[in-house]
Design a binder for these strands. Structure first.
Lengths: 118, 118
DNA sequence: TGAATATATGAATAATTGTTCATATATTCA
DNA sequence: TGAATATATGAACAATTATTCATATATTCA
């Protein structure tokens, strides 16, 4: 299980760094969850869905139609978005309306957009 | 090239929605770039590297050592982070020091962390 | 110059993932 | 109840990707 780990002889206190980091870093589990969250933002179809829902709540079929994609593909991605609590939905007859779950999503998308536009 | 696109008969003005969306959505290219940016945040090794660098600038070898991973794996991921301008580096003799490129990264990580902790 | 050290990188492999296709479930309405 | 509609989902395939291993490049120093 142990890997062969490098150990450089850089002119700074290596051990102090490592000790500090071990103290202040979030747990392995949280870092993993965080990566998993961003993984949901990492597909352009899902990004498009989020932008569409930023405009307004919308049913699956209209999302598909707006993005020129099949209902199946959109449903699959909505499931991923829902599992990570980025969208919520409500049912009205046969129709299911999806909307953004909270404001972090807008902030994250906004900061990301700022970054790529710089 | 054309796909078979669904068209529901939901009791709202479908065409108006679609028209609005086409107007206000960022370009296909930007949405793609945005997904690509978040893709960089979507791996736990890269997330860990970013958290390490949030503490302080650090050389490749110490990052590897802190995370208990090989130098090669870290170098590969640093390249990805650099390409997306999430980290920058400076060279000092044999040693290359990496650090976070700007503040969006901290905001994005922070918002992501808030989301998963809710 | 040659040995040692720090980092970078190409190729290969294993694992993950987005879409499609077919089909299942749920709801309305005649 | 049966047909039509809206959405969900399992399986399969193609494409992408993180790590490892081997090796290359760059720098220092004796």
């Amino acid at each position: 299980m142990e890997k062969e780990i490098e150990r450089c002889e850089a002119p700074h206190d290596h051990r102090e760094f490592v000790a500090q980091i071990r103290e202040t870093m979030p747990s392995e589990e949280r870092l993993y969850d965080l990566a998993e969250l961003f993984q949901v933002f990492s597909d352009s179809t899902r990004i498009k869905i989020l932008f569409v829902l930023f405009r307004s709540e919308m049913c699956v079929c209209d999302i598909a139609s707006s993005l020129n994609m099949t209902q199946s593909a959109i449903s699959h991605q909505l499931r991923v978005l829902k599992q990570m609590r980025l969208v919520k939905n409500r049912k009205e007859g046969k129709t299911v309306f999806y909307s953004l779950a909270d404001d972090h999503i807008v902030t994250i998308l906004g900061q990301g957009m700022e970054h790529i536009l710089e």
